[in-house]
Design a binder for these strands. Sequence first.
DNA 1: GCCGTCTGCTTAACCGGTTCAGTTTTCTGT
DNA 2: ACAGAAAACTGAACCGGTTAAGCAGACGGC
Lengths: 343, 343
Amino acid sequence: MGGLMRRPTIMDIAKAAGVSKGAVSYALNGRPGVSEQTRGRILAIAHDLGWAPSSPARALSPGGRVGAIGLVVDRPAHSLGLEPFFMQLVSGIETELASSGVDLLLQVTEDMGAEIAAYRRWSAERRVDGVVMVDLRVDDPRVRVVEELPLPAVLLGGPEGADPLPCLYTDDAGAMREVVHYLAALGHRRIVHVAGPEEFVHTRARVGAFLDAAEQAGLGEARSVYADYTGEAGTKTTRRLLATQDRPTALVYDNDLMAVAGLGVAHEMGVDVPSQLSIVAWDDSVLCRLVRPSLTAIARDVVSYGRMAALMLGATIKGGPVEKREVSRGELYPRASTGPLGA
Amino acid sequence: MGGLMRRPTIMDIAKAAGVSKGAVSYALNGRPGVSEQTRGRILAIAHDLGWAPSSPARALSPGGRVGAIGLVVDRPAHSLGLEPFFMQLVSGIETELASSGVDLLLQVTEDMGAEIAAYRRWSAERRVDGVVMVDLRVDDPRVRVVEELPLPAVLLGGPEGADPLPCLYTDDAGAMREVVHYLAALGHRRIVHVAGPEEFVHTRARVGAFLDAAEQAGLGEARSVYADYTGEAGTKTTRRLLATQDRPTALVYDNDLMAVAGLGVAHEMGVDVPSQLSIVAWDDSVLCRLVRPSLTAIARDVVSYGRMAALMLGATIKGGPVEKREVSRGELYPRASTGPLGA
DNA sequence: GCCGTCTGCTTAACCGGTTCAGTTTTCTGT
DNA sequence: ACAGAAAACTGAACCGGTTAAGCAGACGGC
């Protein structure tokens, strides 16, 4: 494995410049204590030598940061790759981190116990300066664990149940009201909401808003059923719903994967979309535009969401105040999967 | 941000046990130099204190490792989330790393220049002990860069063009021959291969095998067209192909995303799948099972691929010999998108 | 009884940075 | 010209581990 030459250290620079280690450190970090002339010489030498600061050495110094943050994704591995959400989130987080030279540690776990173990280990071993936590749950045990650890964290979700941590959330309730009004305006009376797992805070928010909005719109039979975001769950749930008499005329899915699965089931059962059934997906992705008919979807700017999360975590690591921020909610993009009955 | 207590260090353990730092280190690392009795006492104290080794400190010691490896994914962010390949690969890599307490750094870049910059930075700053590189290209500049850096690497792809690095590859040519024979056996004569980017080594292998197998099967009109794995490319390419007279009766796509896009186009153009057009996707995923008709696909065990890559990288980091390994090739899973013409 | 070896532990150096406390040099004012 | 202050730089400690070298005491052999 090539590269025989030793990595240059500030000591090498010091020798070449004929000054002490300390002077080099001041020069490289743009701090006072060296003349501009000397600073220039040192920077030039550092550049020539191809020097870069050793991240472990920096981290070890008193008050030093490791320059990395962590993200744990706790979803079954096989369903995972399909949700563009995570990769977009990662992409957004990194856009923000890139400018400050911070890296991202990613861990995929199968359950929350493993997720919590990861936070404990990262904190104890000083692997990261902080973490971004997704999918906030009701009475989330992670909040307590992280709170008593020396581990800054930003939650994606809330604001309910996020205290005392900083959090970032979208107005899911508002978006859901928009969806219900839209479907009601198209004439739909029997709408079912295929929700995510019941324990998620955002699931609660969506379900609550869905039922409220439905009642206000005078839809008697509206209800939410819980599923787990996987394609299989979408398939089974949809099959069950469409097999009832007085079957729903519109379905709202909490993610795109279940919506695509639902579309497949409708096709299989001979239920035409959209003339006999309207479908709305939460979280837009190429997937929604790729299938036929293309799916009406709520599109959030997940990349910005990730960027903002990274920004907030950075501030939290630096010791800033605990903020609770709301980002703009998703917009509804009507496509071919929704329409009036019988059209 | 809670956690006020200082992290325990081996010095704390040493004081509590009434021995020196060195003795604690020997005890904790299972090395000779301490009595079994003392070792037991030290381990107990370490456990009580909730001690874990500081990763930066370990890395800084002469010959120390940082305990992390890196993976750069160089694809346009929006197309990315959809390919289950990467998340499955990550999942596989981590399965293997978990046992040894090694972490994964993930970076998403927009072009190869940024990818190379990431390797340089990781190596110079000592962020990782090694990297896994995907999508090997013809005359890949990354190979030279990594080779002359102090940065162990394992390539996914090859074995052509991988020298002098260790690599891991699948028999794409064999899998492609199987696909062509299968389609030929169904009676297809006009088959087009919608390939990935021309510069990838595995694209070359597949294209070469496709043309060879087609010629052997006596199919005159077989050809490959290059695309870039995105849904848009799949859409455009398919639209163009289906608009020709004497349009192909079977299409083989180099990834699942383009295949799904192609299916959508066929639907849109009123070309029935599979009676008028057969579709085969490379790389199976839930996506292929979700759409209607479900897609015939080549399924590789990507998780194992990732595990093996991590294993090889670990061996390379430890200074093992340069290995070139082949993993079992993908299997063909016939589903509803392929069949004899007019059936 | 004395030498040599082994065991069990300590001491100290080292990794590559940061930073504080001094020390020397240069600048400023009168 | 010279005191005093500011600027430029040095030396050493520190972060938390690992490890080579040194050393005291026990044990065995002859």
